[in-house]
């Protein structure tokens, strides 16, 4: 703990007094369950837009859900062709862009395989037979999703799922809504997908912690402003077979099997939540080495890769805003060039 930290505590206390006396921004809290997760949006400003936020999220869920029989995505999956909503159309387009830039490591058409592993239903996890996987792999190829003039077409047997990008997109949409309402300070937490709008009401950056894989601790914290921070990790949802083999919920679209490559989690931070969400999944699939190469190629985001040999690979842009809070992991800053 440093001296400046105490100055900040005093500043925070002063800000607290201001808020209590009504001179500062009021905190409004929207908390609800949607998209299979607990969402919490704290906004600071005079206007309470909690109801608008919830309404927006519910509307997006109605479009993007893969299980709701009324949703655009469900109807597309079952009818093969559908004139989808603006949101679904835009998100499918962006997701395909991310698939292209990651050479298919993110693939919305992996859904039939994901389903075979039991990750989408409540009926339980299972290890499918190799024949079953290879026959389902015929329906996995994002390049065959045809998208033009507000209409999306899928080949026979194909199904898409926007789960890997939907929450990032939702965060971006909430940000846009708040900007419309002139709200400049908000913390959007969509079940562990964080989007921070502006700074805290007192002007300090938001402090976001990155969860330790498989544990209840925090591995590091980041001081961020106007940024989304989104993590993908196999530890969130996985099952074990009788022999103790672990199968995580992220399927490699190239093999049809759960990813197992030495990465524990990937956190991607950047201004575009949809991109962060998609890249975190794609990088998790790719493995550390390829993910680092891809980052060098684009450099339009920051990232933290946590590996099972206890390293935290961090892009140089995060070096000044990261605080490691777990000494079991060694911080390694990724070189700009090879």
């Amino acid at each position: 703990m440093s001296f400046s930290k105490h100055m900040r505590i005093i500043a925070a206390a002063a800000a607290g007094v201001l808020i209590m006396t009504g001179c500062g921004a009021k905190e409004h809290d929207a908390a609800f369950f949607a998209m299979d997760t607990y969402m919490q949006v704290k906004t600071y400003g005079n206007e309470d837009v909690s109801a608008d936020i919830e309404e927006l999220v519910r509307a997006l869920e109605d479009d993007l859900s893969v299980t709701d029989e009324q949703s655009d995505v469900y109807r597309l999956d079952h009818e093969g062709e559908f004139g989808v909503s603006d949101d679904a159309y835009e998100l499918i387009g962006t997701s395909l862009d991310i698939s292209r830039r990651t050479d298919g490591a993110l693939d919305m058409t992996v859904y039939p395989v994901l389903r075979a592993w039991g990750f989408t239903s409540s009926t339980g996890y299972r290890v499918p037979a190799e024949d079953e996987i290879s026959s389902l792999m015929e329906y996995v190829d994002y390049r065959r999703v045809d998208i033009s003039e507000r209409t999306v077409r899928l080949p026979e047997g194909f199904m898409i799922d926007l789960g890997a990008t939907a929450k990032g997109y939702t965060g971006d949409r909430i940000c846009a809504l708040l900007a419309q309402k002139d709200i400049t300070s908000a913390m959007i937490d969509l079940g562990g997908n964080i989007t921070a709008l502006g700074t805290k009401p007192d002007g300090r950056p938001w402090k976001v912690a990155v969860r330790c894989p498989y544990e209840e601790g925090y591995i590091c914290t980041l001081d961020i402003c106007n940024m989304s921070v989104i993590t993908s990790g196999g530890y969130e949802r996985y099952f074990e077979d009788e022999d103790g083999n672990e199968y995580c919920h992220i399927i490699d679209p190239a093999s049809g099997h759960p990813v197992r490559n030495g990465i524990l989690s990937v956190t991607v931070a950047g201004e575009n939540g949809t991109l962060c969400d998609g890249l975190s999944t794609a990088y998790y699939v790719m493995g550390a080495e390829k993910a680092v190469q891809k980052w060098r190629e684009y450099k339009d985001h920051e990232m933290i890769i946590i590996t099972d040999d206890n390293y935290m690979l961090v892009t140089p842009g995060l070096e000044d805003i990261i605080t490691v809070t777990d000494d079991r992991y060694t911080l390694k800053v990724i070189d700009d060039e090879d």
Partner: peptide
């Protein structure tokens, strides 16, 4: 309570 505003996982 630290001043942790959010947790990503």
């Amino acid at each position: 309570d630290e001043d942790i505003d959010g947790v990503t996982f």
